[in-house]
Amino acid sequence: MHSRISSSVSLVAGISFTLFVFLLFSLFVGCRSETEVSGPGDSAPDPVASVAPEIEPATRVVVTAPTEPRLVTYAEAETAYKNGSYSDAVKLFSLYSEQKPENPWGPYMLGLSAFKVGAFEMSQNAFEAALELDPKHQKSLLNLARVFLSTERADEALDVIDKAREIDGSVPDVHRLKGRALHALSQLTEAADAYRDAIRIDNRDAWSMNNLALVLIDEGFHELAISPLARAVELNPDVAVFFNNLGMALEHTGQFRDAETAYASALEVDASYTKAIANLSRVQTVDQDIGLTTVDMLAMAQDFVEEIDSWSDESIAREVPIAVAAIDSSSAIAVPSDSTTAQDR
């Protein structure tokens, strides 16, 4: 009996101890901290503390008014052009044209400025814009013709020159540009007549005299080309092209020493003029016929003045027959040209 009681007590004690250990373990697990760091190999994510978000101070927003393009006056842009700052003139006249869209002189001057920097497409667009504003803007027509001539579109140049002539045929530029277009189309007789028309209107039009002489040279009449060129250099001694072409006319008549003087004069005006450099170098090696005397340039210039006076208002008598063979070294001659039309408003 006693042994049974002892066994029962031992069993109860064992069970009690087991329950005690179990309850103690449960209490320990139930009280585990939520912030405990997981050990290595534990895939559970770290708990994130619940913290109120920090509020950043408001960013200061500065509102800037749109920048207004600065106002450009016609005088300011024109000054840039006259000073030879053609790239600046393009920018300034572009702004001026935007600010004064009703004024055709804005795109007209933009066209001239663009032409000076070789931007022919921009120049053409500008002149055409001026003509949209004023279809009778003759200066835009004439300078549009210059663009066409510079881009080898002589036929198109003739079309706008005819429109300019309908507006006012008394302007020498109309006839000079017509001469250039006809010359480019190899219509030499008609080109010479157009240049004579220009000179008859303005007997000091040195560019038309130069261009007339080039037609005569192309026709093979070098001696006849000397007098208009002598008059051209007398009127405009600061144009190297005139001296170069005078030298060519003299050289082809055998006047090598006079030609040498003319080429040297061209280089005094423009020391970098490559055609004159080549021409002078060539002619210096050529011996002249000892029977030839120096040409009196002043007398030749006066002869041309008297010739102009003899031209009739109704018609200009041709002095030379229809074109003959042109000279061989035409590449040494400066091409027909003219001065840029004076600017005004």
Rank of each mutant, 00 (worst) to 15 (best):
G111R: 03
Y86H: 05
P336K: 07
R180Q: 15
L144I: 14
Q187H: 13
D168H: 04
F17K: 10
A191D: 04
Q302F: 11
V160M: 05
R153Y: 03
E152T: 15
D218S: 11
L133H: 07
L212S: 06
G220Q: 04
D313L: 08
P47Q: 14
E152H: 05
A126G: 04
A249M: 00
L92W: 02
I322H: 11
P45R: 01
K82D: 14
S85D: 06
D287A: 12
R165A: 07
F22L: 07
S16D: 06
F93M: 04
S38L: 14
Q284S: 04
D338Q: 15
I55S: 12
N143H: 15
T67H: 05
L267H: 06
E219F: 08
R176W: 09
G30R: 14
A323Y: 06
P69I: 13
A323E: 09
L71W: 09
R32G: 13
A264I: 01
S281F: 12
S150A: 07
S26C: 12
D328R: 07
E121M: 02
M248D: 00
M209W: 02
E219S: 14
H175A: 07
D42A: 10
G254V: 00
A326V: 13
V117R: 14
H137D: 08
S186D: 14
A191V: 02
N245G: 02
G14V: 09
G291I: 10
D289F: 13
Q187G: 08
Q124I: 05
V215H: 03
Y273P: 05
V48S: 08
T253A: 03
V63D: 11
L110Q: 06
R153T: 07
Y81C: 13
V72F: 01
R146K: 14
V90W: 03
S265Q: 15
G84V: 02
A184V: 07
R32C: 14
V117H: 05
T79S: 15
A77V: 01
L141C: 10
S94W: 00
A301S: 03
H183I: 09
H183K: 13
T274E: 04
F17W: 09
K116D: 15
L71F: 11
V241E: 09
L141D: 04
T285Y: 13
